[in-house]
Simulated scan of single mutants.
Amino acid sequence: MKHVDQLERGSLGHELQGAVSDLMYQVGIALYDAGRLAQSERAGAIALDLAHQAEDPPARARAYDALSRVSLYRGDPLRAVRHAQRGLRVPDLPPSRLSSLHMRLGRALACVNGGPIS
């Protein structure tokens, strides 16, 4: 992740940006599973940046989904709501991604004003 973070991302072609975005998404999930939430959030932010540069809507939605998950478990449900809402605004998403983003949004909204996180 450190090496990707130091890359001049704009110099990568769209296909490579998309592939590295996917890699950073996977790294973020592994870090999330390991309980390293700050690093997972950073990997998600890199994935999102690369997905924007690659002009890859499904990758953008996937990154927003991951960022929403991490934000909620870091105790910031409002930020989790914003990420889920941004993901839902990405056009032409498959039903599975829309379902996941709606679930993230619902979970985050349930936690606003001190609701449970389980």
Rank of each mutant, 00 (worst) to 15 (best):
A80F: 09
Q85H: 05
L16M: 14
A84M: 10
D92M: 02
V70M: 01
G18E: 12
D76H: 14
A61V: 01
G28S: 12
A43F: 10
E41G: 07
L88P: 06
L93A: 04
I46S: 15
R69Y: 02
R60L: 03
A59E: 03
D56T: 07
G87V: 03
C111Q: 11
H14G: 10
Q17C: 10
Q17K: 15
A108R: 02
L105Y: 01
R74V: 01
L88H: 05
E8S: 11
R97T: 13
P91V: 08
A51K: 05
R79P: 02
A54R: 11
Q53D: 05
A110Y: 01
I117R: 04
H52V: 08
L67C: 14
D33V: 12
L72K: 04
V4F: 13
G106Q: 04
G13K: 12
L12C: 07
R79L: 15
L12S: 07
L78T: 04
G114K: 11
G35W: 08
D92H: 10
L48W: 12
A66K: 15
I46C: 12
P57V: 07
L50D: 04
A80N: 10
N113R: 13
I46E: 14
L37E: 09
L88M: 09
R62P: 01
G28F: 05
A66Q: 15
P116M: 08
L78H: 11
Y73I: 00
E41A: 13
Q85W: 05
A66M: 14
V20P: 03
A38F: 00
S96K: 05
L7K: 05
L88A: 10
S96W: 04
R36Q: 15
Q39M: 12
L78A: 07
S68F: 00
M103K: 13
Y25F: 15
E15P: 00
H14F: 06
V112P: 04
D76V: 11
G75L: 13
L50M: 07
A30T: 11
D5A: 10
V4T: 08
V20C: 05
D49S: 11
G106C: 03
A59D: 00
R69P: 01
G13E: 08
A47F: 06
R62Y: 00
E55Y: 12
P116I: 08
L105D: 02
G114L: 10
L7V: 03
G28T: 09
Y64F: 14
E55W: 13
S99G: 07
G115I: 05
A110F: 01
A59C: 00
L67W: 15
G44M: 14
S118L: 11
M24I: 06
S11Y: 05
V70A: 04
Q53Y: 01
A61G: 02
S11C: 04
G114P: 07
S40Y: 03
L48Y: 11
A84S: 14
L16K: 13
H52Y: 12
R74T: 00
I29E: 14
P95Y: 03
L7F: 06
Q85G: 04
A63W: 09
V27H: 09
